[in-house]
């Protein structure tokens, strides 16, 4: 059944949704949206270096994303520059160097648009296995990490006083973000990946009473948007990545915004 490119696209998209949405809840709760974006932007450099050095591209992206994530977390305690300014600088340094590095990849071997905005209709059988295998591993790790990560997200010092290993837990979490970026890149592209993490969380928020409900609803919202976006893309012959983003946006404005407005009086 994986012979059909549409089926492969749907499967890859659903895998990416199931992976990115629960992780994205933590990104939103911990106010790390721009952090995730910066890590994602570093992915292009990984792709280009992968090409130039002849290593697996997913591996290349994992390496640059992990390096960027560790760098960013190491810089969190510096006070010289506001953190969001620093993120802005590094995000665009990463993107620019990725684009320049891509220039050095000869000919048409590197489909730049595909990496920037995703090329879900071109995912291979191997990509589908990568995404589902990776999603299973990352979600299993997130499940193990869930309690301490949630505790330190609510109140870091209280969690530390209660024995949570703060640094270790945080580092594990940002590594999961880096791996997620590498896995979801094929589906939605490095420029749009953050939307697959934060939109579903924002859609789910007004309908959830606990963090777990929010994560589950976010995964559901992401799956619906991926299916809807792909459907639109095939029907109207539009780019898949941006179509998924607009489907997520439609969910946000149709479902979440009215609910938030009602709750907020």
């Amino acid at each position: 059944m994986l012979d059909d490119f549409e089926t492969r696209a749907v499967l890859a998209g659903l895998g990416a949704a199931a992976l990115a949405a629960p992780l994205g809840c933590f990104v939103v709760w911990r106010r790390m949206a721009y952090f995730g974006e910066t890590v994602a932007y570093s992915g292009l450099l990984g792709v280009a270096l992968g090409f130039l050095l002849g290593v697996d591209l997913t591996l290349g992206v994992i390496v640059t994303a992990v390096a960027m994530a560790l760098l960013l977390s190491g810089l969190q305690t510096q006070r010289a520059i506001p953190y969001d300014t620093l993120l802005g600088i590094l995000a665009h340094v990463a993107l620019a160097s990725g684009l320049i590095a891509a220039n050095f990849v000869s000919g048409a071997r590197l489909d730049l648009m595909g990496y920037l905005f995703g090329d879900i209709l071109a995912v291979s059988r191997a990509d589908v296995f990568w995404i589902w295998g990776g999603a299973a591993a990352v979600l299993a790790a997130l499940a193990l990490l869930w309690r301490p990560l949630l505790a330190l997200t609510v109140h870091e010092e209280l969690a530390a006083a209660e024995g949570v290993r703060v640094r270790r837990t945080e580092t594990a979490f940002i590594l999961l973000i880096a791996v997620t970026v590498a896995l979801a890149m094929k589906v939605i592209g490095i420029l749009l990946i953050t939307s697959l993490m934060i939109f579903p969380a924002a859609v789910a928020r007004p309908f959830a009473k606990t963090p777990e409900q929010m994560a589950a609803l976010a995964a559901l919202a992401a799956a619906v948007a991926v299916a809807g976006g792909l459907f639109l893309s095939l029907k109207l012959d539009t780019a898949a990545g941006p179509s998924i983003v607009l489907a997520l946006a439609a969910l946000f404005f149709v479902a979440a915004v009215p609910a938030l407005a009602l709750r907020g009086r």
Binding site: V28, W29, R31, R147, P148, L150, A151, T153, V154, H155, E157, L158, A159, A161, E162, V164, A201, R205, A208, K209, T210, P211, Q213, M214
Partner: peptide, 23 residues
């Protein structure tokens, strides 16, 4: 431990019941 400052993020849904067994 009851810390002095305890900011709660509105973006995270958290019932009192759930908060009790947070960690």
């Amino acid at each position: 431990y009851v810390p002095q400052r305890f900011p709660v993020e509105r973006i995270m849904p958290l019932s009192v019941r759930r908060f009790m067994h947070l960690n």
